[in-house]
Write a protein that binds this DNA or RNA. Structure first.
Lengths: 151, 151
DNA sequence: ACTGAAAGAATACGCTC
DNA sequence: GAGCGTATTCTTTCAGT
């Protein structure tokens, strides 16, 4: 599962435009369309590329509020339990276990402040969670869509 | 620029698989392929969909370390200045200005801990930045690839 | 919404290193 | 044998009506 330079170029192309045709990608990297397809198939099979997604502007869909929540859990709560508590909430975009005082860091998006408040209440009702600390995003400076997949 | 229910379904489909054909999307939402294309064109034109990207597993590319850095700036540093200080570093995946004590929150990815350390040193050399507080990601619990675009 | 022309994807086959 | 390219067939896309 070693990736050569052309593999990296192909990945870069697909990061830029996941709907590009194999011929287009081939033009960019100096390969024929079937050769590109073979490599992409391999990259998918090897788990380097796990999927393709549209890049959507949340604000255009009416999701104007974004926040990071530090979650503090009881004693030694396993990551699986945190996962279970957090995955139910569709507003959660990402969640991580982290070093430091907090047990986990949750990245979420809400329609507005009222919606955010509702989500926080829901989160705090979870059994494991004893405290939350919210940091609201004022503005997004950079946001490369480079996040890893759910599945 | 109002979106009806079918628009939302189309967006959901493309979030799930950006390389799906118009016919496939049409099947899922109950429309013909050309009708889907018209709507997608409109969604792109209206800035709801800003692009398409591959979902890549950073670990498979050798990027195993991830961290969130709270950045503390001198006095009243403008968001533009923070942006300028942060955008140069390719390891930065996302950056936000936030409420709370910190001026900004930076999400970054590095190859390993040594690389992370190097990035932190680079960041701290920036003029505006007086202090950083690093939180290292131990494990990713959830990561829906729903982040907004760069441009 | 449907049809016809054009473009792209997938497979098979032959060539080179 | 591993990898690329060409050729063919089949599907998808797109612009007309």
């Amino acid at each position: 599962m070693r990736l050569d330079d052309i593999d990296h170029q192909i990945v870069a192309q697909l990061l830029q435009n996941a709907r590009a045709s194999y011929a287009q990608v081939g033009d960019a990297v100096g390969l024929s369309a079937p050769a590109v397809k073979r490599r992409v198939d391999r990259l998918r099979h090897d788990g380097v590329i796990t999927g393709y997604t549209a890049v959507v502007d949340p604000a255009a869909l009416g999701w104007t509020t974004e926040a990071f929540i530090e979650i503090f859990c009881t004693g030694a709560t396993a990551p699986e339990e945190i996962y279970a508590s957090v995955r139910k909430h569709p507003e959660v975009v990402a969640a991580y276990t982290v070093t430091g005082e907090a047990s986990a860091l949750v990245h979420l998006r809400a329609r507005d402040i009222q919606h955010l408040e509702a989500v926080l209440e829901r989160l705090r009702r979870e059994q494991n969670i004893v405290q939350t600390k919210t940091t609201i995003v004022l503005s997004r400076l950079i946001g490369r869509p480079t996040d890893a997949p759910t599945s």
